[in-house]
């Protein structure tokens, strides 16, 4: 487990857990014989840090808990246990106005993340005045500045969300998050709902926010090609646990968890030479109600041995690397064969 470094980590997560008790009906309770655990484990002990000024990508498939983690970080759902620390200090369960301002969220669907009855201008004005970001007489100038920052024009101020296209709405949603001058942005699949040709503009915007404003961004995504383009580090999540974290180039070059390898090999490729034909992983991700014993990936893993089905591995630093560069939660992380996407490119196994 890496020690969260107070100097570099703006947001630290230590053993975050979130379980939901599934309501069982009277009938189910009556027929106790079935004896099923009625708990859904969305987060099963997450250790992660978001470093100051970086874009950290959080990837995983549906049910991996990546969105739940995002919501836990912004405080819209409370964790069952674990500590979230901000600038080294633990966050209280109920955040005050000032603390909630620091961590803002950008949602996936730009059609539901803007209030249809409030114009863009009054939305920004409300936020600016609420947190006293600027004096009242400068609200308009500041609003225009924010809009320009996200690539929108001044005349958007008087318009309502329904007058904009999806990509423009997402810009306005980002403007909403930026208005309160946050340090951290949690972006939950912010381009998944957009058309391909528009996605790039929003990705560009995130990149410039990180580089020019120095924002720390947790970018939740399922598209690895997008992640590779945008982030400095990548954390891979599987069934409520981080299974691998590394710097982006390192992770894609030298993945040290079989699940990460499966994810990378499953990416549909853009160039004709790199079409990957072989089957990489079998089966569907299991349900978070019913997490397999031992390593949670072992039932689908081609490298799994007996011990993998018994021991639940924790996230460990890869031997021989600098602490914090690359960690994996695979018992056999050191023994995995060399991984190369180049090999697949040539069509050889």
């Amino acid at each position: 487990m890496n020690q969260p470094d107070v100097d570099t980590a703006i947001l630290g997560m230590s053993d975050i857990r979130k379980t939901y008790r599934l309501s069982s009906s009277v009938l189910q309770r009556f027929m106790k014989g079935s004896g099923r655990r009625s708990e859904l484990t969305a987060l099963a002990g997450v250790d992660l840090e978001l470093r100051r000024g970086e874009t950290l990508a959080l990837v995983g498939e549906s049910g991996s808990g990546k969105s739940t983690l995002g919501k836990t970080l912004v405080g819209s759902i409370g964790a069952s246990s674990g500590i979230i620390s901000y600038n080294g200090a633990p966050m209280p369960a109920h955040r005050d106005k000032e603390l909630s301002r620091r961590i803002q969220m950008v949602f996936q669907d730009p059609y539901s993340s803007l209030n249809p009855r409030i114009s863009v201008g009054s939305m920004l004005k409300e936020l600016l005045l609420l947190h006293q970001i600027v004096p009242r007489d400068q609200v308009r100038d500041e609003s225009i500045r924010i809009l320009n920052r996200v690539g929108m024009d001044e005349d958007a101020l008087t318009a309502y969300p329904s007058q904009f296209s999806g990509g423009q709405r997402q810009r306005i949603a980002i403007a909403r998050a930026l208005a309160v001058r946050p340090d951290v942005l949690i972006a939950d699949e912010p381009v998944s709902a957009l058309d391909v040709s528009v996605q790039a503009t929003i990705l560009d915007l995130f990149e410039s926010l990180q580089k020019e404003l120095g924002l720390s961004i947790l970018f939740i995504a399922h598209n690895l090609a997008v992640v590779q383009h945008l982030s400095q580090r990548v954390a891979v999540m599987y069934l409520g646990r981080i299974v691998e974290v590394a710097e982006t180039a390192e992770l894609f070059k030298n993945p040290r968890h079989p699940y990460t390898r499966a994810l990378i090999a499953s990416i549909p490729r853009m160039s004709a030479e790199s079409v990957n034909q072989q089957f990489v992983v079998h089966g569907d991700p299991p349900s978070p109600i019913d997490i397999p014993p031992g390593c949670r990936f072992s039932p689908r893993c081609t490298f799994a041995q007996d011990q993998c089905r018994k021991v639940d591995p924790t996230l460990q630093n890869i031997a021989g690397t600098v602490v914090g560069l690359h960690s994996s939660a695979c018992l056999r992380a050191g023994e995995l064969p060399i991984f190369s996407t180049i090999l697949q490119r040539d069509g050889a196994q």
Binding site: S100, R101, Q104, H131, A173, R176
Partner: peptide, 8 residues
């Protein structure tokens, strides 16, 4: 949710 998260 976003409005809540902005500290309102």
């Amino acid at each position: 949710v976003g409005a809540r998260l902005s500290g309102m």
